[in-house]
Design a protein around this nucleic acid. Structure first.
Ligand code: ZN
Ligand code: ZN
Length: 388
DNA sequence: AGTCAAGGTCATA
DNA sequence: TATGACCTTGACT
């Protein structure tokens, strides 16, 4: 028993099983056992399934009890499957395997499902000190994306394969939005130390106020990144096809009471409006990930809310000012924007468009509620109050 | 030369 | 067969 080792005056514990750790592995502080487990899992492309409810404890004594939950925890603490290298010696058995899957020749490519967009950039670590909050958001967004891949993985699908994005129905979209609430709330806490320290009431108020607009704004942003403005991209990577609203709103299980024309009349104007006022401007601005984070910050820390405390207003104002300063530094010294003021104003001007877009679409849903066809949004909003 | 984090090996359960 | 202690490698300082 070596006991916990010293490392620069600090005890380090494995983020997965709490055993004393020896260093970073694949993006997280981890013991060698968990690192080896993660490497084997990714390298051999194994899939596990949990016999329980995907919430088994993974601690040092029972770390092997549930492989599925151990792997999920690896992802949650920040391990990146892309960190596992491709098998170097392409042995004969591997060649045979790849013959079975002629469409996928290079397994390592599968670890990078996101198309390499220059707008999803990372900043050099030398800039981290100058923009700490944005840097933290960027890094934890990567963690969020990995966690989403696990969470939204289709049953039976290989976790390491990039699922081809598919159009979703209304019910699936709500379902994915509900599943993503917890991850997003975790992400918010990862991003803002100040948010983590708020009272539960204040957290709920801020998060509830921001989640739906954020959900839609992120959908617009991701569709801008993918260059498919007519799609609203969901956290899972699937999308709402606004050119085919009929299949979106008419789920197969529900009665097809509404004609395709009626659907278009009800929903098309607000969807088109959202694309025109949010997604397309993002594309023309070439909004990047850090600028998107600034918008999220302004959205979350809504100091105009009537229910929040004076202290919360003070904190929110401080956070927003800090992030705007970081944006200023980023535009001047990293992105080297010619007219930072004009660009910042254009970016911030997206927020009222997002808010109006959300309101329009929510109004549409109110109308459908009168028709008593869709009730999922009630569950959705009820769920929001149970977090934190 | 020393550290870190990859991959590999192989006794053991 | 999966695990994890132990070893090798290769990049970086
Ligand atoms: Zn561990
Ligand atoms: Zn489990």
């Amino acid at each position: 028993m070596g006991g916990p080792r010293f490392k620069d005056k600090v005890f380090l514990k494995c983020a997965i099983c709490q055993e004393s750790a020896e260093g970073f592995h694949f993006g997280a502080e981890a013991c060698r056992a968990c690192a080896a487990f993660f490497r084997r899992t990714v390298s051999n492309r194994k899939t596990y399934s949990c016999q329980g409810n995907n919430d088994c404890d993974v601690t040092i004594n029972i770390r092997c009890m549930c492989r599925a939950c151990r792997y999920i925890k690896c992802i949650e603490v920040g391990m990146n499957p892309a960190g596992v290298q491709q098998r170097l010696p392409p042995s004969k058995t591997l060649v045979e395997v790849s013959m079975d899957l002629p469409t996928v020749s290079n397994p390592s490519i599968l670890s990078f499902p996101s198309p390499p967009s220059s707008l999803m950039l990372h900043i050099p670590s030398s800039y981290s000190n100058q923009m700490p909050i944005l840097d933290k958001m960027r890094k934890s967004y990567e963690t969020l994306c990995n966690a989403r891949k696990t969470l939204h993985r289709k049953d039976g699908a290989n976790i390491f394969q990039d699922n081809v994005p598919k159009p979703v129905t209304y019910k699936k979209a709500i379902d994915q939005g509900m599943k993503d609430v917890k991850l997003t709330s975790d992400w918010v806490s990862w991003c803002f130390e100040d948010f983590k320290n708020l009272s539960i009431d204040q957290k709920k108020i801020l998060f509830h106020n921001a989640y739906t607009p954020y959900f839609m704004m992120e959908g617009g942003f991701l569709s801008h990144i993918r260059n498919t403005p007519e799609h609203l991209v969901m956290p899972s990577g699937d999308y709402i096809d606004t050119l085919d609203l009929n299949s979106f709103y008419n789920c197969s299980e529900s009665d097809r009471q509404i004609s395709s024309k009626e659907i278009d009349r009800l929903f098309k104007p607000s969807n088109d409006r959202f694309i025109k006022s949010v997604t397309l401007p993002m594309m023309s601005l070439q909004l990047d990930i850090f600028e998107f984070f600034v918008l999220f910050t302004l959205l979350l820390w809504d100091t105009g809310l009537i229910e929040i405390s004076e202290e919360c207003i003070e904190i929110g104002t401080k956070v927003k000012t800090q992030v705007l300063k970081e944006l200023d530094f980023y535009m001047r010294n990293v992105k080297k924007v010619e007219e930072p003021l004009v660009r910042t104003a254009n970016i911030v001007n997206l927020l009222p468009a997002v808010q109006k877009g959300v309101r329009r679409i929510q109004d549409d849903l109110e109308v459908t509620k009168v028709f008593d066809l869709y009730t999922a949004s009630d569950e959705f909003y009820n769920l929001m109050s149970g977090r934190f």
